[in-house]
Amino acid sequence: MTDRTAPNPLEQPLAHSDEGPWLRTLTDRLVATPQAFLRPEVVTEAVLRDALELVTDAPLEADALSAVRRLGGAALPERLAAQVAAHLVTEPSLRPVLGARAPVDTAAGIEHFTALVGVVPLRQWFGDDPDRHEEVVRALLRCMAIRPRGETHAQSEDRWQSVSTGLRSDALRLAALEQQRAAELAKALADKRAQEAAAQYTHV
Results as ranks from 00 to 15, higher is better:
Ala198Tyr: 12
Ala186Arg: 11
His203Thr: 15
Pro40Gly: 05
Leu185Phe: 08
Val43Lys: 14
Leu116Gly: 01
His133Asn: 03
Thr165Cys: 11
Arg39Gln: 13
Thr152Phe: 08
Asp3Tyr: 06
Leu52Ser: 06
Gln35Met: 09
Arg181Cys: 04
Ala139Ser: 12
Leu71His: 02
Val89Thr: 06
Arg69Gly: 07
Val84Pro: 00
His153Gly: 10
Val42Asn: 02
Glu53Val: 02
Leu189Met: 08
His133Phe: 03
Trp125Gln: 01
Pro13Asp: 07
Leu80Asp: 00
Gln200Ala: 15
Tyr201Cys: 11
Arg142Asp: 01
Leu88Trp: 00
Pro7Ala: 13
Val97Ser: 04
Thr106Asn: 03
Phe113Tyr: 04
Asp28Trp: 07
Pro92Ser: 10
Leu167Gln: 13
Ala36His: 10
Val104Gly: 06
Arg142Trp: 01
Ile110Arg: 00
Asp28Arg: 12
Glu45Gln: 15
Gln83Val: 02
Ala67Ile: 00
Leu122His: 05
Pro40Cys: 03
Ser162Pro: 01
Val68Trp: 00
Thr90Ile: 15
Gln83Tyr: 01
Phe126Lys: 06
Leu23Ala: 03
Asp105Gly: 09
Asp191Pro: 03
Ala51Met: 07
Thr5Lys: 11
Gly150Val: 03
Ala197Pro: 05
Ala186Gly: 03
Ile110Lys: 00
Arg132Gln: 12
Trp160Cys: 09
Pro121Cys: 07
Ala145Val: 06
Arg95Met: 14
Pro21Gln: 08
Thr165Trp: 09
Ala51Glu: 06
Pro21Cys: 15
Pro103Arg: 02
Ser66Ala: 14
Val163Glu: 06
Tyr201Ile: 15
Glu19Asn: 04
Asp50Phe: 09
Ala81Leu: 02
Leu26Pro: 01
Asp170Gln: 13
Pro9Ala: 04
Gln124Trp: 07
Gly73Pro: 02
Leu14Met: 11
Glu45Gly: 15
Arg159Asn: 03
Arg69Ala: 13
Leu65Trp: 01
Ala139Met: 04
Pro96Arg: 05
Leu174Asp: 13
Ala81Cys: 02
Arg101Asp: 06
Ala182Gln: 12
Leu189Gln: 14
